[in-house]
């Protein structure tokens, strides 16, 4: 993160409080969703969407990813690609089973 003036830091602090409120609210939403009858797949997808929104808020504001340097973005792009491969390995195995 680049050098910040005291005014900018104070502005950031207001943002942190708003993000905290949003995270607390979304935590309650996550629990609420689990009580709804959305079907198996619907429940999983909605819960993961809410978790992804919460994760994005933490990364963008608390970890200051919005203001980061391009070196970090490239590191994270490589990480996300490798992570997605890891996640899709078991899914491809599932598809193989379905074919058999």
């Amino acid at each position: 993160m680049s050098e910040l003036t005291p005014e900018e830091v104070k502005h950031h602090i207001k943002t942190y409080v708003l993000v905290f409120i949003a995270l607390a609210f979304l935590t309650i939403v996550t629990v609420g969703i689990s009580y709804l009858d959305l079907g198996h797949v619907g429940g999983i997808i909605l819960a993961l969407i809410v978790a992804s929104i919460k994760g994005t808020l933490v990364a963008c504001y608390f970890m200051h990813l919005l203001d980061e340097k391009v070196t970090i973005y490239w590191t994270l792009i490589a990480t996300v690609v490798a992570f997605l491969i890891l996640i899709f390995v078991p899914l491809s195995a599932m598809l193989d089973h379905a074919r058999i």
Binding site: T71, T75, L76, F83, L86, I87, V89
Partner: peptide, 30 residues
């Protein structure tokens, strides 16, 4: 890099942590 070394080092460490937990999430799905 546009960063101080410690910060780049920690981000690289966190990338390895994503893979550590990613492996377990993958095992969970499996």
């Amino acid at each position: 890099t546009g960063l101080y070394n410690g910060k780049l080092g920690v981000w690289l460490f966190l990338a390895s942590e994503v893979m550590l937990f990613g492996g377990l999430f993958s095992a969970y799905i499996f």
